[in-house]
Computed example of a mutant assay.
Amino acid sequence: MSLSGLGETGEAQPAPALFPAPESGAPAPARRRAGSAPPGPARGAEADRQLVFFGADAAEPTVADLAGLLAGPGEVVRMGGTARLSVRVDAAWRVHVLVAEFASRGLAASWEPTDGERHTVRTSYTRVLKPLAAAWLHGPVKRPPAAFHLTGRRLRLWLTAAGTPEPPDGFLLRFGADDREHWESIGVALAAAGLAGTLINPAEGGPTYRITGRRRLSRLAELVGEPPPAAPVDAWPTRP
């Protein structure tokens, strides 16, 4: 059930259709006539939205951003001089968004359904991911490299794979089941990004970090940027 490197599905195996497929592209900005004055500042809420330093909109996508998936439930494995990244998700919209995110970084991706209406999304084996694997793997154990930090694009990928709102003013960022080795390090990175959270252990419904409070949720929304077209309206943090 392969998807092309451009994030488009093959005719034989469409992407999971549990929701409308995302619309492609965005409206082109209006052109300004030669010699005319530049448009004035936008009015309303959009005018108040500033580009956040380290936010998802502040830089072009890079392979290094995929560390955000490894901070969450993503896995990376090596084979010879190559590596492959995979992540298991619980909703079809996440498949659409992740395939597009991989494609924007020049990585081909495939997906397959697993048990319980879940899906596994994975890249092909490629040399491009070898440095990421080298930084995160200590033998078979996944562990964040020293001085790991979370940028907006890394958080956006983590949220896409395993972020869940917890009304009225909470948000959960989940780990993989075997990520105990790096719970503390990722908690430090979240706090450094202004998103100090509470670690929820597996016995209490985790492993996950719970981020609560309107101020922190606003910060999370600023960092991860606008929701992707495929994401349900209530699945993404919003700015007040």
Rank of each mutant, 00 (worst) to 15 (best):
S2F: 06
L6K: 11
L6V: 10
E8P: 00
E8V: 10
A12Y: 04
Q13V: 14
Q13L: 02
P16F: 10
P16R: 09
P16I: 13
A17M: 05
L18P: 02
A21V: 10
E23F: 01
S24Q: 13
P27R: 09
P27G: 11
A28I: 07
A28H: 09
P29T: 15
R31W: 08
A34V: 13
G35T: 14
S36P: 00
S36K: 07
P39H: 12
P41R: 14
A42Y: 05
G44R: 04
G44V: 10
A45Q: 09
A47F: 01
L51S: 11
A56C: 04
A59P: 01
A59G: 07
A64T: 15
D65L: 00
L66G: 10
L69C: 09
L70T: 15
A71H: 07
V76T: 12
V76M: 02
V77I: 11
T82S: 08
R84N: 06
R84L: 08
R84F: 04
L85W: 08
S86G: 13
V89C: 03
V89R: 03
W93E: 10
W93C: 08
R94W: 07
V95I: 08
L98A: 11
L98Y: 12
A100D: 13
A100W: 01
E101T: 09
F102A: 09
A103V: 10
G106A: 10
S110V: 08
E112H: 09
D115Y: 03
G116L: 02
H119K: 01
T120F: 00
V121A: 05
R122S: 14
R122D: 03
S124L: 04
T126S: 12
T126C: 00
R127W: 03
L129G: 12
K130S: 14
L132C: 08
L132E: 12
A133V: 12
W136T: 14
W136I: 13
L137H: 09
H138W: 01
H138C: 03
H138R: 14
G139A: 10
K142C: 08
K142N: 05
R143E: 15
R143W: 06
A147H: 14
H149C: 04
L150Q: 06
G152L: 01
R153W: 08
L155Q: 08
T160Y: 01
E166Y: 06
P167W: 05
P168E: 14
F171W: 14
F171E: 08
L172R: 13
L173Q: 06
L173F: 06
R174H: 14
R174A: 15
A177Q: 13
D178L: 01
R180E: 15
E181K: 03
E181S: 14
H182Q: 14
W183L: 05
S185H: 10
G187M: 03
A189C: 06
A191R: 11
G194H: 04
G197M: 02
I200F: 01
N201F: 03
P202E: 12
A203H: 09
P207T: 15
Y209H: 14
R210A: 14
L217Y: 03
S218K: 05
V224S: 04
P228H: 15
W236Q: 06
W236S: 07
P237L: 04
P237K: 07
T238A: 06
T238L: 00
R239Y: 07
